[in-house]
Design a protein around this nucleic acid. Sequence first.
RNA 1: GGACCUGUAGCUUAACUGGAUAGAGCAUCGCACUACGGAUGCGAAGGUUAGGGGUUCGACUCCCUUCAGGUUCACCA
Length: 591
Amino acid sequence: MNIFQEIQQQVQQAFPALFGSEVELNKITINETPKEFSGDITLVVFPLLKLTKKNPEESAKTIGEYLVANNKNVAEYNIIKGFLNLEIKNEYWVDYVVNGRQSTVDSRQKETILIEYSSPNTNKPLHLGHVRNNVLGFALAGIYKANGHEVIKANLINDRGIHICKSMLAWQKFGNGETPESTGLKGDKLVGKYYVEFDKHYKKQIEEIIVQGKTKEEAEKQAPLLLEAQEMLLKWEKGDAATIELWKTMNSWVYAGFDITYKNLGVDFDKFYYESDTYLLGKDIVEEGLQNNVFFKKEDGSVWIDLTADGLDQKIVLRADGTSVYITQDIGTADLKYKDFKMDQSFYVVGNEQDYHFKVLKLILQKLGKPYANGIQHFSYGMVDLPSGKMKSREGTVVDADDLIDDMIASAKEQTEALGKIDDFTEEEKTALFKTIGLGALKFFLLRVDPKKRILFDPKESIDLHGYTGPFVQYTYARTRSILRKSQDAEIKHQDLNAEYKLHPSELELIKVLYKYPIVLADSCREMNPAKLIDYAYEIAKTYNKFWHDCTILAAEREDEKNFRLLLTEQTGNIIKQSFAIVGIDVPERM
RNA sequence: GGACCUGUAGCUUAACUGGAUAGAGCAUCGCACUACGGAUGCGAAGGUUAGGGGUUCGACUCCCUUCAGGUUCACCA
């Protein structure tokens, strides 16, 4: 319980006695008071007027007087138009700091949640779009964990299919036996190189065929390279030993490459699913759906579902030859996940270009009456676009994940060394620090935007390290650590502090921000939005810096002042560290 | 063509889900420190919230409409 909820409930309980009618809790809107008005908490009375049967002023006055008389923490009130501003007693805030955090949020039931994210294809390296996915997925998992839920992080690796065969075929034809060892290339880069290579030759063949008088569509279907790739896929499906061998080898290169990128990004997984294991799943469920008349069979033998009543189209779920389509696999995998984990909710961190697909998937599972259907949620995020448009691996117009990470670390290094504050660091310490700062800047940059919105990334403009950024918050953390190191007393003397302590405005402002931490944490979970927590971390840093500027800490005039401010400093540092850790950003002791 | 998403200062963005004078950062201009970390703080300027209409005490937020951009509607994944 926190003071906002407390007052809200108190008003609800007193309402019948004050006004002679019941009121719903959500009608009582409680906000922070904007800075330009006096007070800490604001109750908006407009929505209550029909129930109070009085004008705004009188209604507010009645509630205000009731609270001052009956809530020991409310000092006074003022009314401006229909807004009742409540001032909380100094002691309440002081006590909050001195005796540790008390504000909590009455949370909903704890659940088991499976979060699938990352889910790469094994035919090319990761790019900036994947980085956004990984960073978002990891942060979302962290937020749910921090709110007490059980979280399983899953990665469904798309390790088979025609696109994989394209890389394999191109390597076979043009690779001259190259390996990561022989070339010094990272495994995923090497495989990606041949994916591009395939496309190059394929396009050439198409042109040649068009010259012979065929249409573009015909040419695309008839190009020998494509036919060969399709043949290879068939061989793979039949379990042809040589094909499987090549597939295993090249995938192992890719995994070695991914491991490095994942490690640099600091993301991890509890469970891996491989599409080569799951691509045949779902067929039995289609059969089940046919029995229940959820699906129907067309004359050619293909199986469909009619979703026109739900405003969507007809959707095929099984080809005439009995083979699966994408959604068949997803149905099967959803079922497998439930068998494995019996989760209450299942999130898919997947780009918004698949909005329609997931709408269909959920609807199908609902119509099949699956117990997990309602718990399925597509965590849909916007694409990362370049000024030139969409990133396309085949055309090489991508911002490579590893390159980007290297660039970020390099610019962190440059800026940090220019300031000359860490000349006594060992090389190892420096390397670690540059990584902390560089990745902090990158992750902050990707997380600060509402996930739903697309991000425009201009490679020519480097990601900022000043202002509303990760390093700004990290810097503030390092400041708090610096002060605490310098404070003579290893321990802060709580006994010097008492509720009579008179707060400086900047202290009060900081306390109110710290106080909100559990509320923000709960909000960012409820709204599934890591940006909330990022924005909050920035708010703490900014508020602390103002406090720092206005209030002398170590050289404070009185002992209780010094101790109180050290305590605030310590708590600020802790909350910055915690909130950043939740979304996967590190903080340095010095920078 | 149908469906969905987006549009806020020059740029990048926020606004507690309908609340007070739309809040930040970058860039621009001007201030502040012989102090504990200047990757700082304070201030100025910058807005018809794409346009129009509606709903009400009150609209960036909800409804209608127009415009602009994007995604999707594959027996690809």
